[in-house]
Design a protein around this nucleic acid. Structure first.
Length: 237
DNA sequence: GCATTAATTGGTC
DNA sequence: GACCAATTAATGC
């Protein structure tokens, strides 16, 4: 279960808020309290409704964060890559996770307990400030998402979802690095898998997408972006 | 190779 | 545009 603990001070995830402040005076004693967990694919490492246990920082791998909806439908809130935080919504408030998180591949996660984080925040102002900026940005994304869901057509939402995956994880050999099922895309875009299939096959006919097997590729990102440009948002969400 | 799951297509409300 | 049904493709065992 627990393997080698990555060293925060030399970690290559420079976007991680802990890493950014890992060299600050007084951080060592908190960094020692870190717990690192190795997960295989499809592990449900945060359970919806379970008590909050600190924050998770994804060290290596990919995960999805989602909520359970009515009759089996899920809403994927976001996907998470290296250095990103999971579970931040439950921090501070002494309550339960309103989301669940599942690994999409072999993934290593770092965890700090709420108590350790609280002490960190009290004592390392630059860390606290970084967190504040992070929360602000998250709220911004969340608000943008509300607008998208309300105003975009299904076709646009699917395009937006695909662009998001590209933005986050990129392409390799002209195909998206993160391979998702049609249902996963649907759960993220807020529609059904049938609609996703229809939109994707339509986009393939228009040469806006390519595919090899189940993998999707974007030949011209700007061209695809132009399809949803009327929504003129400049914030990634 | 069989069985289960995912993708696709067509149709209805 | 969601839901349902039927068919086909893919994947696990």
């Amino acid at each position: 279960m627990t393997g080698l603990k990555p060293d925060c001070q030399t970690c290559e995830n420079l976007n991680c808020l802990i890493r950014k402040n890992a060299l600050k005076e007084g951080m060592e004693k908190y960094l020692e309290k870190k717990v690192t967990i190795s997960c295989k694919k499809s592990q449900n490492f945060i359970i919806e409704g379970s008590p909050v246990y600190g924050l998770f920082f994804l060290y290596r791998g990919k995960a999805s964060v989602a909520k359970t909806g009515i009759n089996g439908r899920e809403q994927i809130i976001r996907f998470v890559g290296n250095g990103e935080i999971i579970g931040h919504r439950g921090f501070g408030a002494n309550n339960y996770y309103q989301i669940f998180a599942v690994t999409l591949e072999i993934t290593v996660i770092c965890n700090f307990s709420t108590q350790v984080l609280e002490e960190m925040m009290q004592n390392i102002p630059s860390l606290t400030y970084d967190f504040m900026l992070f929360y602000s940005e998250e709220l911004n994304k969340s608000e943008t998402k509300v607008k998208k869901f309300a105003q975009m057509t299904v076709r646009e939402k699917v395009i937006d979802a695909i662009l998001y995956i590209n933005r986050k994880f990129g392409q390799e050999d002209g195909l998206l690095t993160l391979q998702l099922s049609r249902k996963e895309i649907a759960d993220f875009a807020g529609t059904t898998d049938e609609q996703v299939i229809r939109v994707i096959s339509g986009l393939k006919k228009e040469k806006l997408l390519t595919s090899v097997g189940k993998k999707i590729g974007i030949p011209d990102v700007d061209k695809l972006k132009a399809e949803i440009a009327v929504h003129n948002f400049f914030i990634d969400s």
